[in-house]
Amino acid sequence: MVNQERRLLPGAGSVMKHRDARRLSLILLFMPLALWIVLLILLPHIGMGILSLREKIGPRQYEFGLANYIAFFQEPIYWHIMARTAVISLLVTVLALIVGFPVSYYIAKIAGPRTRGAMFMFCLIPLWVSDLIRAFGWILLLRETGVISGILQWTGLASAPVELLYNDAAVVVGLVYTVMLFMIVPLTSTLDGMDDAMIEAGYNLGGNGLTVLRRIIIPYAMPGIVSGSIIVFMLTAGSYLTPVLLGGKYSSWFTQTIYDQFITRYNWESGAAFGFLLLFFTSFVVWIGLKLSGQSLSSTVARS
């Protein structure tokens, strides 16, 4: 009580001091965020933007211009790789949705309360294992001397070793596997919030399984579908390990092109331009997805 009175009856000077202290603590709290964002996100991206606008006109001679971006559109191989990355990423997103939706539905609506938690935890296992080990596992399964080839020969389905690695299908399978979780988690949590009575009402009104799925369940799950798809698409388009390890040297993934420009050819200007193109492209797709579904970025990210 005494202390409360002391807090309630401060002199005028101490009010000022108190306000100053609050402002000081606000500034102190704000510093880590400001330093982090400005030094590690904002300035590096500005620097990369400036670098990408530098044209090399001679040894150690540069000029401002769009040459690095123009080169991207004039050289078919570059935008072919970009288009290829986009198409495969889209395919991976759709496949992850098709494979993951029944799984989420089962976990959220069909499984009993005890198995539900266990199944959900089980789905999370790959999250705890690094991308590298997951890709390594797929290499051991798919390669010529790998497990699947061995099983095929053992059962007589194949007469000689089969190489299943280093093709687009292997890349797609590996990517779907890697990103699956980011589809299942938001889907399951959205479906979990759905009232079973809604489904029953659909059936009572004479709908069959397909109509109920199309008219009731999918519309309800839309926020989960959107956030899952956005995250999955971004992760896929920006991935490096899985396409390189499962697709081999010529998997032609856009991040690989960026790596080549930076590390192999030491052409940082064009690498920076390509990096920006990838960033624009993925942000554009995310923006479209958010606009079409009327959701906000923070709710989408927070959900996963």
């Binding site: 590096p44 991206h45 990369m48 971004m234 991040t255 960026i258 970025l297 990210v301």
Partner: peptide, 25 residues
């Protein structure tokens, strides 16, 4: 808050090269 969430949606490759470029500059 949105600014704080942003780094999570920037591809990791881009974060890597932008910081490399900035630090080297």
């Amino acid at each position: 808050y949105i600014i704080m969430v942003l780094p999570l949606v920037i591809p990791g490759v881009i974060l890597g090269i932008s910081i490399l470029v900035f630090a080297s500059t």
